[in-house]
Design a binder for these strands. Sequence first.
DNA 1: AATACGACCAACCGCCTGCTA
DNA 2: GTAGCAGGCGGTTGGTCGTAT
Length: 554
Amino acid sequence: MRRVSNEIEDEVLPSDLSAAQLNDESYEGSTSIVLKKGPWTSTEDDILVDYVNKHGEGNWNAVQKHTGLLRCGKSCRLRWANHLRPNLKKGAFTAEEERFIAELHAKMGNKWARMAAHLPGRTDNEIKNYWNTRIKRRQRAGLPLYPPEVCLQGFQESQRNQSNGGLNGGDKMHLDLLQTNSYEIHGAIFDSLKDNQGILPYAPKFPDASVYGNMLKGLDSSQYCSVMTPASPKHKRLRESTIPFIGSNDTRKNGLYPFSQIRDNNSDKIAQSFGMQALLDPGPSSHNSMCYSHSLSNGNSSTSKPTFEAVKLELPSLQYPELDLGSWGTSPPPPLLESVDDFFQSPTPISTLESDCSSPQNSGLLDALLYQAKTLSSSKNHCSDKSSNSSTATPGDRGDSSALNVYETEWEDYADPVSPFGATSILNECPALLRASENSLDEQLSFQAFTGNIPKLEFVDQVWTPESENQTLSLLNFTRPDFLFASDWHDLGSGNGKNQAITTDTTMTLLGDHFASDRKHMTSGTSQSSQVWGFGSCATANNMPALCQLSDLG
DNA sequence: AATACGACCAACCGCCTGCTA
DNA sequence: GTAGCAGGCGGTTGGTCGTAT
């Protein structure tokens, strides 16, 4: 505890701050702490302005010493920055500013200060307040958080930067595209598709995890789940790696999957990209996040058997500890970190799926392990091959993404390897991802997926090489969202047996059916569940109603 | 007219980073 | 190397105001 110096009290303390304010309850303590809180008075403002004019900005703690202003340095700085400094632009944001903010947010995420730097006269606090309000408003209205052009632009930028910069070179697509209400995002996607049919040819080539992630995320929105997924959840802030939704104690409290155990930023980003909280909602009987999420995502419920054996089989080499194979089936549930990461990165889901219905898992652990190992091997081979093939693509193969590249250069400024752009973070770590979207792999995965011609990916026997592992894993990362997305829509299509155009207006209803179907499949254990895992199996015709149509439109 | 609700906004809080002794 | 400090940043809170019921 400290006191204002006698000098301040006797000499510098403004008259209007002396007696009355010192007795004001807003002051912390009547005898020891006299720093004031609460709204600033005009007199205080005048004092602060006068001080800054004389001494300049900075050294805010000295303000109190020199002026007797009963405010802490932080408060002085904030007051100056947000209200007193010159050239501040007050009033509502203009339409242009709002659009720019949306674009900036898509690129930067909740980097209010950086966003404010691009908006002269606007403060970070102002932008933040505006955005938070906007989120609430649009979520409530069921509107896309980002304008369609922003979504497409972000995707295209991520594509371009990925091809130009390789790993971590194109961290442009902001995670919040994923963070925000998935309903909003996929709504935005479809709105964009509706409103921008001129560029619809791009739609089928959406390899961006954000697209899938957000669409998937729709499933965890309050509209679809009883559990509310706050747009700005409480969580421990990680600089340049903000991880909303995940890592929040609230999440656990809400019954959402405890992603807080995920330590790895990349994993966080991936997890966020898929908006898995609600989907990963672990039932009391389910310890395995992958199994659980799988169950939900592929139309099965949490009652499906734990399948973390498969998860561990697919443990990526990039960032996860090796696991003891011998403990897969007998050890306690694996750490959530592994489970979640595996869920997102491992190709094993294929085997996992099958284990859910007709997999050898049912016949015993050993059989399951053998089967899954086999599946893993074949899937790796296949993926490596795909990645290898796709890696030969040339930049010229990419589609024209010049449209809507208003801020292309700015995106370069945010090529932060640890930026919050979860979506592109995934892409960054998946060099094959974008390449795949631009080449034959794209045709095989994305196009076929969107056209519903891939009931199941055929893994050819090819030599698995260590050097291809990264690409494979990356590719799998890409396919994971693909799979997730497909799985999300799986039962949407199965609801009526036909591909259907899913609009923003009908999404909620359909998703509601989806969950209903989830529960149904959970108990019935249909074979469909086994088709969800894996990037090939995700793309059954009925699984991708909306995107199939998008493909048609393209 | 009273109340409830939501939007908006200012300010605070806690954490992090960078600098310096 | 590290502890302390200042400043910055993002999340959250609480108050005020306008609008709907």
